[in-house]
Nucleic acid binder design. Structure first.
Length: 178
DNA sequence: CCCTGATTCGC
DNA sequence: GCGAATCAGG
């Protein structure tokens, strides 16, 4: 479906109201992607949304000369190279609530050290040589002692870790500046 | 991983 | 003009 006057108007309205491109896309109906919305917004020169006194130069990515459409699938790459840095210890101060605590309450206030680390049964633990492409490679324990092993649970297709550790690994090192 | 907008360029 | 793919950031 093309951009009828109506749709363009709705687009302008929603965009100005601060909705995100994907939200607008959803509002305009199926078949409209957020890219389509953004592209249109750009062409309409509506990009500057709520930017009073801002002269953001916005760095240019320097036109890429490399062909975009990748035709060849490219063979798999090495998958046995993961060097994560798991939390070594986690003192983790639990919420320091400012609630008043009467002396007799304190006794009941002990909160179990929510072991947010997975407990892996001994028979599930893996050493380095036992790892394969489907085992979570999240290291646990001190690598210098025998008290060390890998998670070993079934890893996700999207990474070297199981769901639990995958989520953890990302949200931690994610957004790390270069 | 989820998400956001910005940009480029084949169509 | 259109928008998928990509980039850059949160």
């Amino acid at each position: 479906m093309g951009w009828t006057d109506e749709r363009v108007e709705l687009l302008k309205k929603l965009w100005m109201e601060g909705l995100s491109a994907s939200q607008i896309a959803g509002e305009l109906g199926e078949g409209v992607t957020r890219n389509a919305v953004i592209g249109k917004v750009h062409r309409l020169k509506l990009s500057a949304r709520a930017k009073p006194t801002n002269t953001a130069p916005r760095a240019r990515p320097a036109a890429r000369s490399t062909p975009r459409r990748v035709a060849s699938p490219s063979a798999g790459m090495s998958h046995v190279s993961a060097k994560p840095r798991p939390t070594m210890s986690r003192p983790q101060v639990m919420g320091a609530t400012a609630l008043a605590v009467t002396p007799d309450m304190e006794a009941d206030l002990y909160v179990a050290p929510a072991s947010q680390e997975l407990f892996i049964p001994e028979d599930k633990r893996l050493n380095l040589l036992q790892l394969n492409e489907h085992t979570c490679k999240w290291p646990i324990g001190d690598p210098l002692t025998k008290d060390f092993y890998f998670c070993g649970q079934h890893s996700l297709e999207t990474g070297p870790y199981c769901e639990f550790h995958s989520r953890r690994a990302y949200h931690q090192m994610d957004k790390k500046k270069r």
